[in-house]
């Protein structure tokens, strides 16, 4: 590479500055992921409401949140929310990002929970009923302990996906690695090196995590999904 375009001096100067944002980036990922994990339950239970019109509305609200840009949703929460008369409050960039990304991805995570719950054997529900469990106990002791563990790899995938969406928050001023890089770039008029650092950091963190989750998935599949894979083999066989 031509040295006028790329300078290792700049690279090593930018590196510690960009790294200063890493704590925020990782912290935002974890916080918004936790938010999404909790809020995901809300969707799961809302979707179990048997009222038809209500169910329809909830399904489409989820679809709306899911198929519109998280960037716009961040702007909505950060710029627009405080302006809403009555309920509006000013939120810090970090909190806005937690809520924005958290809600956006909770719609996906709610569906993951749902798939886990639907995979629980029908007999388990009947057994819970036969043993006269209360509703809370039924969920806490019978259904969720079986429904959730198989979803862990999928949830892990969403953790990585959210990690890669977190730099969107730089647009509302969350000082993660991307904002650090851009700020350095603006001050020194050298963007390529700091942005390359950001890319490398993402790659270094997300690629091994993805491999780890793949391994976990294979391990879990053999533990939980014996029946499902058998079923699939049968399905494949009949053609």
């Amino acid at each position: 590479m031509n040295s006028t375009y790329w300078s290792w001096d700049t690279f090593s100067e930018a590196l510690p500055i960009v790294l200063k944002g890493l704590g925020i980036t990782v912290g935002l990922t974890i916080t918004s992921f936790l938010f999404a994990l909790i809020f995901g339950f809300v969707w799961t239970f809302l979707r179990r409401i048997r009222n038809k019109p209500l169910n329809w509305i909830i399904t489409w609200v989820m679809e709306f949140i899911r198929s519109t840009p998280p960037l716009v949703q961040l702007f909505f929460i950060y710029y627009a929310w405080p302006m809403i008369p009555g309920i509006g409050v000013t939120l810090s960039p970090f909190t806005s990002a937690v809520i924005g990304l958290g809600i956006h991805f909770s719609t996906y995570i709610g569906e993951i929970y749902r798939s886990g719950i639907e995979a629980v054997d029908k007999g388990q529900w009947e057994a819970a009923k036969a043993l006269n469990f209360s509703t809370v106990d039924k969920w806490r002791r019978i259904i969720l302990p079986q429904a959730l563990p198989p979803t862990i790899p999928m949830l892990g995938n969403y953790f990585i996906i959210m990690f890669k969406e977190v730099p969107l928050a730089s647009t509302i001023g969350v000082a993660g690695i991307l904002l650090m890089a851009n700020t350095y770039g603006a001050q020194n008029w050298a963007y390529l090196e700091p942005l390359t650092i950001v890319g490398i950091i993402f790659l270094l963190l997300s690629y091994p995590s993805a491999i780890l989750i793949k391994k976990l998935e294979i391990k879990m599949n053999t533990r939980f999904d014996k029946k499902a894979t058998l079923e699939n083999t049968k399905k494949g066989a009949v053609m």
Partner: peptide, 23 residues
């Protein structure tokens, strides 16, 4: 595949925005 899946779109966008004319 791994580079583009492993980094985020917004980072790639900015990177290309500065890199394409430079490189």
């Amino acid at each position: 595949v791994e580079v583009f899946r492993g980094t985020s779109l917004i980072v790639q966008l900015f990177w290309l925005f500065y890199a394409i004319p430079m490189l």
